[in-house]
């Protein structure tokens, strides 16, 4: 990974010696307090997601009708839901679900986007023309609506949700990758690889992808937050995941029926979503500021 960032820095800052810059990226991250904070929070959050079954005080699906709709107390730190299930345990398990689906979606879109972007940028001509048109079409209508329609028609479930969100997300990676490839294609090291007779696949894999990937990783970081929001939105509408899976959006949706008497069921899952998305926003902005110092960090998308 170090070399990718180092290359980028060398181009940006015209600094001579290559060896040191991987460490420079890490150093710059540690110089920024907000990123340090976000990183710490992310590590904490990932740990929670990973060890959720060990950490959660109750079984997240254990129904206990005698103790339903309880407010926060010592027995149940965040209270219980309408079936008496412990809210804290469900939020902890929910972290794992949101995070793993979001990672899956981002990885799939990254992979598809890189493949499509490389094909379009590297081969050019008719391939480029047709792939670019498809990308334009996918980028030119609102994604949530499309994802909603796909999952709604295919039926809820983890696989369908990931499929729908990936179909919506891949085009942005593809467009970014295409642009990267177009600039890289003309650089000397690629030309020299071509003249020494390297195959297309070899050039793409060894020379183009490693040099083009940094901005895509920034996009992926910011996207993780967006995808988590989308998952919550779809589940909230009752379309994303089956009702028995403890997902934050679905918990909110169930909790809103009891808002008058037990508002904690609406407040806590929303706080969890906000917390995670804030972490990814800070990280994404920070990485972009470091990789691209000329960019003023203004636009969000």
């Amino acid at each position: 990974m170090d070399n990718v960032f180092a290359d980028r820095f060398r181009r940006e800052d015209f600094l001579p010696q290559p060896g040191e810059y991987g460490g420079d990226f890490v150093k710059r991250v540690f110089q920024r307090k907000d990123m340090l904070f976000a990183l710490a929070a992310l590590v904490l959050f990932a740990g929670v997601a990973l060890f959720a079954p060990l950490l959660s005080p109750y079984d997240p699906n254990a129904i206990d009708l005698k103790n339903k709709n309880l407010g926060p107390s010592e027995g149940h730190l965040l209270g219980t839901d309408y079936l008496g299930r412990d809210l804290l345990s469900r939020i902890l398990i929910g972290a794992r679900i949101s995070l793993s689906i979001a990672f899956g979606v981002v990885l799939i879109s990254l992979f598809v986007g890189i493949a499509a972007g490389c094909a379009a940028g590297y081969y050019g001509g008719l391939v480029d023309e047709s792939v670019s048109r498809v990308i334009d079409i996918f980028l030119s209508f609102p994604g949530v609506i499309f994802a909603l329609t796909i999952v709604g028609v295919l039926g809820s479930g983890v696989f369908n949700l990931m499929l729908a969100l990936s179909i919506v997300q891949w085009a942005r990676y593809a467009r970014l990758m295409r642009g990267q490839v177009l600039t890289l294609k003309k650089q000397e090291f690629v030309l020299s690889a071509v003249t020494s007779g390297a195959g297309d696949f070899h050039i793409i894999r060894r020379h183009i992808v490693p040099n083009a990937i940094a901005p895509l990783l920034v996009l992926a970081t910011i996207d993780l937050g967006h995808v988590i929001l989308s998952i919550a939105t779809l589940s909230f509408l009752g379309i994303g995941l089956p009702a028995d899976i403890p997902e934050w959006g679905a918990m909110l949706s169930a909790g809103k029926e009891f808002m008058r008497t037990a508002p904690h069921q609406t407040i806590f899952p929303g706080l969890a979503i906000t917390f995670v998305v804030v972490i990814f926003s800070i990280l994404g902005d920070g990485i972009r500021d470091i990789l691209d110092p000329h960019h003023e960090g203004g636009e969000m998308y």
Partner: peptide, 22 residues
Amino acid sequence: TLFGVSMPCFWVALLLILVFSL
């Protein structure tokens, strides 16, 4: 603004109902 772009809008809507309506 950071929180504004990070909060799910359905949650904001529910909080607003909670405070201003209920």
